[in-house]
Amino acid sequence: CNNKNGQPVKRKKGPAPKMLGNEVCSVCGDKASGFHYNVLSCEGCKGFFRRSVIKSAQYSCKNNGRCEMDMYMRRKCQQCRLRKCREAGMLEQCVLSEEQIRLKKMKKQQDEETARTSTVVTPTPPQEVATLDPQQQDMIEKLVAMQKQCNKRSFLDRPKVTPWPQSQDLQNREVRQQRFAHFTELAIMSVQEIVDFAKQLPGFLELTREDQIALLKTSTIEIMLLETSRRYNPAIDSITFLKDFSYNKEDFAKAGLQFEFINPIFEFSKGMNDLHLDEAEYALLIAINIFSADRPNVQDHDLVERLQQPYVDALRSYIMIKRPNDHLMFPRMLMKLVSLRTLSSVHSEQVFALRLQDKKLPPLLSEIWDVNE
């Protein structure tokens, strides 16, 4: 993995080359265990680099950053070790979050189980019947009731939304501004729904104000997209808001959004619609999404993970009861949360494009999406 001058050489994308058994780590010189983050490294340096990046760790060197890294010093000076990791070519954008790793392992286990059961025909022992304990049942019922109440308040605010203009003149500046205002006001109502729902989740108010803000800022657009998919109508390929307002792709475009953002929204909505989720499953997914400990600027990761776990357990049990023969539904649903991370990145690009068009977002949306006007 090094050239003749001792400099690391980044390998090309694709399957990792077969190891000969005598390779050494590009960071510390220990026996390498594989190609991690695009560079040959040992298991220890791989894990250290991943944890450091995820937790945004800050280290200090007692030797003014002049430590020579080897198998001994890698345990003595973490700052120089992290610096050597980056110099060796480890890529931070290749690091998977804790949630992504868990989902990846879960999917691999499910795939192995499916392959094993499809090739070996054995008598199927009676499976243990999944049940929801009283606490889980009560939690799910409260989640669904909370969501309905938040939606009801938004529906009552419907008259406050700027009317969608009837004019088809695409060149009229006033008409374009009305369409944009219509969509942004719907977005504001959705944000307010999400904030109200989050504040009612058990444990959310136990978090520091800083962690509450960090979770809401990063999860809001993803929950908005989940709610959008929930309102998708495959028969007319449109999305309905507040029971009466239906919009197709062209309507989104008329409001100033780009098809690079519109098309992924509709594709995601179609995929979610194919899962045929009910209100309880959507509510649990939203709660799981809110309590994601790997969000930027979250400080108390352990508390956020503990708050998330009951919703994960309840969703798993609920799915086993509702779909006892579909063992892949639970990982498929969690993988949708990973897809939302990609859509969130596309949304950031859309917000930037709107600013280039001189379309100013309302203060609430600017704050929640960290837009500096």
Rank of each mutant, 00 (worst) to 15 (best):
A115K: 13
I101F: 06
S317T: 09
S97V: 05
C61L: 05
M73R: 05
K108C: 11
D70G: 00
I262C: 08
P134E: 12
E174M: 12
C1V: 12
Q299G: 03
V24K: 15
N64E: 11
K31D: 08
D300Q: 01
D294Q: 04
N172D: 15
S219D: 10
I321K: 14
F197A: 02
Y232M: 05
K104G: 11
H276F: 06
R51C: 07
N263G: 04
I54H: 08
R83S: 12
C25I: 07
S348P: 02
N151D: 10
Q93M: 10
K107M: 12
V53R: 00
I54D: 06
R153V: 05
H182G: 05
I262V: 11
A181P: 01
Q258H: 10
A353R: 10
V24D: 13
M106Q: 02
P362N: 04
V161K: 02
A235M: 06
R102F: 08
R316I: 08
D157K: 12
D300N: 06
M272V: 10
L226S: 02
S41Y: 04
Q192Y: 03
I236A: 14
Y59P: 01
M224S: 08
C61P: 00
K336F: 13
K84L: 07
Q100M: 12
N64M: 08
A130M: 00
P165M: 02
S56K: 13
C150D: 07
F180L: 14
N273R: 08
C150Y: 01
F330M: 01
L40K: 13
K4M: 14
Q350L: 11
T119F: 14
K18T: 07
V346T: 15
L207G: 04
L156C: 07
Q192M: 07
P296Q: 04
R231C: 05
N151F: 04
A187P: 02
D70F: 01
H301P: 07
C25S: 09
M224R: 10
